[in-house]
Amino acid sequence: MMSSINILSAADLLLREANELLERSGVVQASEKYYKAAEEAVKLMVKELNLTEILEKLKKKIEV
């Protein structure tokens, strides 16, 4: 039986920080953390789903 391992990504950590900031100090700082969390989530998806090739093709189409 495989044990459960809880690994937090940078996006997870930033999301937690954003939620804490939203409760404590307000929307502006929290929204900046949410934005960074979204960026990190996209980076993780690109890496995990091996989307690098697709992104390279898209960049070539945009440059034309």
Rank of each mutant, 00 (worst) to 15 (best):
M2N: 03
K59V: 10
T52P: 06
A10G: 10
L15H: 02
K36A: 04
R24H: 09
L22H: 08
K57Q: 14
K36Y: 10
K33W: 00
S3N: 05
K60M: 13
A38D: 01
E40W: 01
S31N: 09
K36N: 02
K36H: 11
A37I: 03
A18N: 05
E32P: 02
E56M: 07
A11N: 02
A11H: 07
L58H: 13
V64N: 15
L14R: 04
E40P: 02
A41R: 00
L51V: 06
R24L: 09
I5H: 06
K57V: 10
A10L: 14
Y35G: 04
L55V: 01
Y34E: 01
L14A: 09
S9V: 12
L55C: 10
S31K: 10
T52K: 08
A30P: 01
L55R: 13
L14M: 08
Y35T: 01
L58R: 14
E17A: 13
L44F: 10
K59E: 10
N50K: 14
K57P: 03
S31A: 12
M2S: 05
M45F: 15
M2G: 07
L21R: 08
I7F: 12
N19Q: 11
K60F: 12
N6Y: 08
I7H: 10
E53C: 02
Q29G: 00
N6M: 11
R16T: 14
M45A: 14
E23T: 04
N6W: 07
L58P: 04
N6C: 05
E53G: 05
N6R: 10
S3A: 04
N50F: 07
V28L: 14
E23S: 07
L15P: 08
M2T: 03
I62T: 03
K43R: 15
K57H: 11
S4E: 05
E63P: 03
L8Y: 13
M2W: 01
L13I: 14
A30I: 07
E63T: 14
Y34H: 00
L44K: 09
L49Q: 03
K36T: 00
V64Y: 15
A18L: 09
N19E: 15
L15E: 00
N6I: 06
A10M: 02
S9R: 00
L58D: 10
Y35D: 07
